[in-house]
Simulated scan of single mutants.
Amino acid sequence: MLGPSGAWWLKQRVVGKVPLFGDRRIIGATVRGSGVRLTVRSADGSVRQIESDHVIAGTGYRMRLDALGFLSPDVRIGLARTGGCPRLDDGLASSVPGLHFTGLPAAATFGPVMRCVCGTGTAAPRLAASVASYLR
């Protein structure tokens, strides 16, 4: 998977101007005046408090098909999987006829670029051809 990253033009606006704390787990938060006091645990187990006016927490996530409530339980059960993602063919089609996936669910089959806008250049022609052949 790709690590944390932002647009190239953000670096000069952030580095040295905004404190960054990676590899921390927030274990507590309290209001402190007009700001917040976070209690965080580092990977080495040490605990510290951080006070700030604003906090942006990139907490991470895992792709889980079972969390996609718009898919019926029967559809979710019928999906062949690679880890928590649907197993896809070259046209982004799943094991359920007519059901295709792009974006994050396609990353396990096609790689992390599918999580990004730049992945649409790969996904769009494959998806269009697959859907067209399915409709024939």
Rank of each mutant, 00 (worst) to 15 (best):
F21D: 08
Y61H: 10
S72Q: 11
D66R: 11
I56P: 07
R25P: 05
G60W: 08
F70S: 07
P19W: 06
R126Y: 02
F70L: 07
T109C: 08
G78C: 05
A43Y: 09
L71E: 01
V40Q: 00
P73I: 01
H100C: 08
V15G: 00
T82N: 06
V36G: 04
S42Y: 12
L127T: 11
G45I: 09
G119K: 04
A57W: 12
S42T: 13
D90F: 06
V96H: 12
Y61P: 01
A123W: 05
V117E: 04
A107H: 07
L127C: 01
G16C: 12
A80N: 06
M63V: 15
R126H: 14
S34D: 12
F101A: 03
A107W: 02
A106D: 03
S72N: 09
I50K: 01
L65Q: 05
G22L: 09
G83C: 10
P73E: 13
G121P: 03
L104D: 11
R64G: 05
I26D: 00
A108H: 05
A107G: 05
D90P: 03
G33C: 09
P19V: 08
R115T: 05
A29N: 01
G98E: 02
A123I: 10
A129K: 14
V47Y: 08
V36T: 12
A107T: 14
R32W: 09
P86V: 01
G16I: 12
G45P: 09
D44C: 10
A106K: 02
A57F: 11
L71P: 07
P73Y: 07
C85I: 04
H54S: 10
D66G: 14
G22C: 11
V96P: 07
F101S: 01
L71S: 05
L104E: 08
G119N: 01
G16S: 07
A29I: 06
G111D: 09
I50N: 00
T82V: 11
L71A: 02
G16M: 06
A107D: 03
A57I: 01
L71K: 10
T120C: 09
K17E: 15
R48L: 15
C85W: 03
G22V: 13
S72G: 15
D66V: 11
F110Q: 04
M114Q: 09
D74R: 13
F21E: 13
A93Y: 03
G33V: 00
A108I: 04
V15W: 06
F70C: 11
T122A: 11
V18M: 12
R126V: 00
A80Q: 13
G60A: 07
G69H: 11
S42C: 08
G83T: 04
T30R: 13
P112E: 14
V18E: 04
G58F: 12
R115G: 05
H100G: 00
D90M: 04
G33L: 02
S34H: 14
V15F: 11
L88H: 02
A107P: 07
R37A: 06
R24I: 14
S95C: 12
P19K: 09
T39M: 10
R115S: 01
T30S: 07
G16F: 13
A129V: 11
I26H: 00
T109H: 09
L88R: 02
A128T: 13
S46Y: 03
A67W: 10
A29R: 04
D44R: 14
V55N: 04
V47W: 13
